[in-house]
């Protein structure tokens, strides 16, 4: 019978944390499994991303069909911003060939949590080619 390799305490701890990380990842995926639209509020959630640099946080939001003058970026608290924008045209499920849902959308809406302290009052935004960029100094 082959002797069982004795594991060091570091290997055991590493394995434990890897298992925890996987569990958290799975839980995160389960919790974020939701439609990217809300029929009651007539809103669509835009794709958005966050990049954290040593001196600033950059948030980008893809807003196709957004009307530039309606874009709003509001700090909700010290770590959260809310982004909304009206669309130039109403989007319906039928536009995508979908007939088993009913609903139409006129607005983009999302909230983003900024995981590091930032100076919200120094926030700057620009909108180019349908893409919103928000820069917030740290």
């Amino acid at each position: 019978m082959a002797a069982r390799k004795k594991r060091s305490i570091f290997e055991i701890v590493e394995e434990y944390f890897e298992g925890m990380e996987e569990g958290v990842e799975r839980l995160g995926e389960t919790l974020t499994e939701k439609p990217s639209w809300n029929c009651r509020a007539c809103t669509m959630e835009p794709l958005h991303n966050i990049m954290i640099a040593p001196d600033e946080v950059t948030v980008t939001v893809d807003l196709p069909f957004a009307e530039e003058k309606t874009i709003q970026v509001k700090p909700i608290d010290v770590n959260t911003i809310e982004i909304s924008a009206k669309m130039r045209r109403t989007i319906r499920f039928e536009d995508f060939g979908i007939t088993h849902y009913r609903g139409e959308f006129q607005t983009f809406h999302c909230r983003m949590y900024i995981p590091v302290p930032v100076r919200m009052e120094k926030m700057e935004t620009r909108f180019k080619r349908g893409m919103l960029e928000i820069r917030i100094p740290r």
Partner: peptide
Amino acid sequence: KGEEIRLRARDVMKRTQQ
């Protein structure tokens, strides 16, 4: 159709990202 494609492809993009 660029804007329409971007809107339609949001969900696939999100899953692809993961």
